[in-house]
């Protein structure tokens, strides 16, 4: 296989096929990976956008269009662009008439098994949380995962009171979890018997996330008003 003149140095003659094999296979694999990545990227982004879209529409009843916003360092919201930090993003949903239906906010915290991620919808006009969906959880099937399915628990989030206090920087009544069946005020979350940790983890997310986001969003509500009715995608 080698040209006669090349075998002078035995070490080189032995190492050449190794280099050739490794570099050749490396290049082949690189080419393969990159081409598949490029080919599948549009489909993947489309899937992700659709999944987010569906979740936003779930937590904001009446919403039919969505725009993502990012909180800038200066403290106001602008439309999110490629590469923005997802942790500083919220998603505004709009009704068919182009009215602001509410803002969907993502929150996360440690649950019983692993991190729970939720998305909840906030309606600034009524100052209530109007919907909640679990995005990811590994809670125990049949017990902890009732935070996703239990109708009674979900009913907590149809009109959860998050009214701002008079000073405008904190909530009048922070969201709190109470034992199942003892809910008396609209800012309380009725826990699930047998899934205490999971349900209070969700309440904890809402408590912290709402205290952080809602004053800012309420104050900068004008940022979310639609300039004009643009098309639904994006």
């Amino acid at each position: 296989m080698q040209a006669p003149g090349q075998t002078d140095n035995p070490l080189r003659a032995a190492s050449w096929p190794m280099y050739r094999a490794l570099v050749g296979v490396g290049m082949l694999c690189g080419l393969l990976i990159v081409s598949v990545y490029v080919l599948t990227l549009p489909a993947i982004t489309r899937n992700e956008t659709r999944a987010l879209q569906q979740a936003v529409f779930q937590v904001l009843p009446g919403a039919v269009a969505r725009t993502s916003f990012v909180l800038t360092a200066a403290g106001h919201f602008r439309e999110a662009a490629e590469g923005d930090d997802p942790a500083r993003m919220v998603h505004a949903g709009y009704t068919a008439e182009g009215q602001l239906a509410g803002i969907a906010i993502e929150g996360r915290a440690m649950g019983y098994q692993d991190v729970i991620r939720i998305l909840y919808g906030y309606a600034p006009q009524q100052q209530v949380v109007v919907g909640m969906q679990v995005l990811a959880s590994k809670e125990t099937p049949g017990l902890g995962d009732r935070i996703e399915k239990d109708a009674g628990f979900r009913a907590n989030f149809t009109a959860l009171d998050v009214t701002l206090a008079a000073d405008g920087v904190s909530l009048e009544h922070p969201v709190e979890a109470v034992k199942n069946g003892t809910r008396t005020a609209p800012w309380q979350i009725d826990g699930i018997t047998g899934a205490t940790i999971s349900s209070s983890a969700v309440a904890g997310i809402l408590n912290r996330s709402s205290a952080q986001w809602i004053p800012v969003i309420h104050q900068r509500q004008a940022d979310f008003m639609r300039p004009e009715a643009t098309d639904d995608q994006r």
């Binding site: 094999a21 490794l22 296979v25 490396g26 694999c29 690189g30 393969l32 990976i33 598949v36 990545y37 599948t40 489909a43 993947i44 899937n47 992700e48 999944a51």
Partner: peptide, 23 residues
């Protein structure tokens, strides 16, 4: 080493294909 390279590339390919098919 080459086998692992080859396998890792195909796994990356499958990973992207599944993402494209169903999130």
């Amino acid at each position: 080493a080459t086998f692992i390279l080859i396998i890792a590339s195909f796994v990356t390919v499958v990973d992207y294909l599944i993402q494209a098919l169903s999130l």
